[in-house]
Design a binder for these strands. Structure first.
Length: 377
RNA sequence: GGACAGGUGGCUGAGCGGUCAAAAGCAGCAGGCUGUAAACCUGCCGACCCUUGCGGUCUACGGAGGUUCGAAUCCUCCCCUGUCCA
């Protein structure tokens, strides 16, 4: 997977690049909407294309449980299955180790867990995660990692980081084996790329060790995991900056699960190329939208008679046509369209924000942009 | 006209002598959401006051009386609603 850097900001770590994938070229920095169950909740694939989403996420754990990776494989992989022509990144299920921790048990081999759907027992290993993802056929897949909640003891962080490292090596080896097998059978010329994940919490010595180990194994791209799990913002930014600086210049850097619009700006400035987060979609469904003036809880009573759009400065299809008063009504009436309109707006806001960052990096105005936006807060 | 059943906070609806400003749900108000067990979750939800405390005062379980130290809860009368019988 080729990654070219098109432009670097002179004053910050920000960079603009092009990531070549089997399903097209992604302009970075980029935001990837989250579509866990092979759907970005509330919007259609056509709408995602119109919004300019270049790449979306899907989830190994969730798709393994339902409908099962074999069904997805038979139906043309994720791209055929969900009729999405652009790139897809699949997460490995590492996040579910944390979010569903009550249902799982981590061992050296992998994760034993009970399905949150029906309680049935399952086992996910680094090799298994690779196999499932190979069947899902994304453009980019992730190694299985262990993601810990904040706060975690240094001892536990160390253990999880070392385990993630051993899992990364196993995943890489299995991935290479499967790839060779595919090549022998001439099944595919367009292989997914595998990204490794750096763990270590907010402890920089652990982060450094994890980064060095992950780089030694060698991946097409490097992700920072285990951030924005409850730690103070300053720590998130410091760890991101210091860890990004350790990673190869010529590989994409992916900050997993982050974040707010503010987080995106701060972390683009620290050299991150890729982001994903459920915030724009989940918050939208819960009646809260992002605007150029900050967060707006559109379901609040104060907007009942508000004829203005969600964001006056926004040019999205929702803001061009619908009022806050109408959208609030849809939420109060539990009409599904409310969630869709808010999601369309939020995704536009996120995607447009990233496009602006990229444009600023390329045109040489990123630092000015960065300072202005920071000063505006 | 008669026989039952019933009238409780915006709604539905528990409570059936004190621990009741009154369960629960809904509605309403607000907050939270960061690699999605999330169209979810949490808090508030009679009024007023303050030293904001498992604080005080007032008003409140159809109406008016009564019994009782004490009544949404028991008694009497009245009003209203529903079902059934004439």
């Amino acid at each position: 997977m080729k990654f070219e850097i098109v432009s670097r900001d002179a004053a910050t770590g920000a960079r603009a690049g092009l990531l070549h994938t089997p399903h097209g070229i992604i302009e970075t920095p980029c935001f990837m909407p989250v579509g866990t169950a092979a759907t970005v909740k509330g919007v259609t694939q056509e709408q995602l294309e119109q919004l300019g989403a270049q790449i979306i996420l899907a989830n190994t754990y969730h798709l393994y449980l339902r409908p099962g990776q074999e069904i997805v494989r038979e139906m043309g992989g994720l791209h055929g299955f969900m009729s999405w022509p652009r790139p897809i990144l699949t997460d490995s299920g590492g996040y579910q180790v944390m979010s569903l921790r009550g249902l799982g048990r981590v061992t050296e081999d992998g994760v034993h867990f009970r399905s949150h759907l029906d309680g049935s027992s399952h086992f996910l290993s680094p090799e298994r995660a690779v196999e499932i993802q190979m069947a899902l056929r994304p453009d980019t897949m992730m190694t299985l990692d262990e993601c810990l909640e904040y706060p975690a003891s240094r001892e536990n962080l160390h253990r999880a980081m070392k385990l993630t490292g051993r899992w990364a090596r196993r995943a890489k080896e299995h991935f290479e084996k499967l790839r060779c097998f595919e090549e022998e059978k001439a099944e595919s010329r367009m292989h997914p790329a595998l990204f490794g994940i750096v763990q270590g919490g907010t402890d920089m010595s652990l982060r450094r060790e994890s980064a060095e180990n992950t780089m030694e194994i060698g991946f097409a791209g490097y992700a920072l995991g285990g951030l924005s799990v409850g730690e103070p913002k300053s720590e998130t930014y410091d760890v991101t900056e210091s860890t990004a600086a350790l990673l190869p210049q010529d590989r994409p850097r992916y900050l997993m699960g982050v974040g707010t619009p503010e987080d995106l700006l701060e972390c683009v400035a620290r050299g991150i190329d890729m982001f994903d987060c459920v915030m724009p979609t989940r918050n939208a469904r819960n009646g809260s939208v992002f605007t150029s003036q900050g967060k707006l809880v559109v379901k609040n009573a104060r907007y009942a008679r508000d004829e203005t759009p969600l964001d006056r400065a926004c040019e999205c299809s929702v803001c061009r046509r619908y009022s806050r008063g109408y959208i609030r009504h849809l939420f109060m009436a539990h009409e599904i369209l409310g969630a869709t309109l808010a999601t369309l707006h939020n995704l536009h806001f996120y995607l447009d924000t990233m496009r602006k960052f990229r444009h600023a990096i390329i045109s040489g105005g990123f630092e000015k942009y960065f300072s202005r936006v920071r000063a505006g807060r």
